[in-house]
């Protein structure tokens, strides 16, 4: 088999994302990066927990009054479902079905965008109705840094997946781009993992205590 034939989508091997050395390296390197991201988010979570409801000499609304559970629940379901649709996309990638993979990645992007819309509305609501801003007090700074940093990850993940989809739309699936799609989907799952802790530690625990 020639090199060109190897790269064509009708001859893909089993697990195309790990069939090349480059793919294997991307896979390992990305997990290393995720380990680092875990620590990064931990420092933001730690900061948030330490500064939760710290208003200093300023007036502020405590977590029990500030947060609303309905919107957070909708956001959680949106993000969790988008995690499932990106699993569907990887399922079709493993079966070498490029069109269906693109379709499910598209659904993932839509759900992610809906999540982002809810988050923007939420922040807007806090700022305009509760004067809960980034610079108002230590609690505000810690809250927007943690949740906003997660939101920035969602923005980055969406742009990443969209770029991959558009750039490879006419190329089809091959050994060169399969690892890219796989790694982007890992990133998307990691975003959902972080959100699980945000809705538990920030919103639910904020509502209880």
């Amino acid at each position: 088999m020639t090199h060109d034939e190897m790269l064509r989508s009708d001859n893909l091997p089993h697990e195309p994302e790990k069939a090349t050395l480059e793919g294997k390296n991307k896979f390992l390197g990305f997990w290393f990066f995720l380990g680092g991201e875990t620590v990064l988010f931990a420092s933001l979570f730690g900061t948030y927990l330490a500064l939760k409801n710290s208003f200093g000499s300023e007036e502020g609304v405590p977590t029990t009054e500030l947060f609303g559970l309905e919107l957070v629940f909708i956001m959680t379901v949106l993000l969790l479902t988008s995690s499932l649709t990106s699993v569907y996309a990887m399922y079709h990638m493993k079966n070498h079905d490029f069109k269906k993979m693109q379709l499910w990645l598209g659904v993932t992007v839509l759900l992610g965008a809906a999540f982002l819309g809810c988050e923007i509305y939420e922040f807007y609501h806090y700022v305009h109705h509760y004067e809960h801003t980034f610079t108002a007090h230590a609690f505000g700074s810690a809250f927007y840094t943690l949740v906003g940093f997660h939101g920035a990850h969602v923005v980055f993940g969406l742009s990443w997946i969209l770029t991959l989809m558009i750039r490879n739309a006419r190329r089809g699936l091959n050994l060169y781009n399969a690892p890219k799609f796989y790694v982007a989907s890992l990133y998307w799952h990691f975003i959902d993992v972080v959100w699980v802790f945000i809705f538990t530690v920030v919103y639910l625990m904020g509502k209880v205590a």
Binding site: W31, A42, G46, A50
Partner: peptide, 19 residues
Amino acid sequence: MIYSGVFAAILTILALTTI
């Protein structure tokens, strides 16, 4: 890699919340 990350994460959160 991920469990090393989790280990460091737990230490970080413990340190920042107890301080």
